[in-house]
Amino acid sequence: MLVIASLSLSSCGIARQRIPNDFSQSNQQEPALSGNGQKLALIVDQLGRPTVQVKNLVNGKKLSLRHLSRNQPHSSPSLSWNGRYLAIITQRGTRRIAVIEDLVTGRYHTFPLFQDKDPYLLSLAPSGARLAVQIVKNGKWQVQIFDLSQVLEPDKPSGIIRQTNL
């Protein structure tokens, strides 16, 4: 089940793969590719709780997440270039908060309140230097960009990643 299955080629040279349903959960939502296209974060139903999973598309393996097996529902996953950082929205009490897990060091960063607004959607820049957050303000959707360059080490395309379970 670890092999990426069902590759089909259409007449116009577009290759398709469907992610095999090897998670034993049915619904798969909110796909987010890493910049290098080798990892995929997605939300699956785990006993009715939307939970993030990260998959290595090269070998089909599911990556272990140190801090993200609880605080569901999870939503809006986003990966950096090599998939070192996973940004996601989790639950803390009655609030939704943005968090980032460093899959290399295991560090966990929380970004509690964006102007006292709960985040609705996130997008992490491939380098990890910026985070875009969608919030509601005065009844309107708003996107705000935050600088994380003092918080996260860059995850550059040429970056060397320490071999862990990545």
Binding site: I4, I14, A15, R16, Q17, R18, I19, N21, S26, N27, Q28, Q29, E30, P31, A32, L33, G37, L40, L42, L57
Partner: peptide, 18 residues
């Protein structure tokens, strides 16, 4: 490479499209 959330037969699935 695209990862696409697709509704099929009442389920959400994810397709990878090169």
């Amino acid at each position: 490479l695209l990862a696409v959330q697709v509704s099929r037969g009442g389920n959400w699935e994810i397709d990878l499209i090169r």
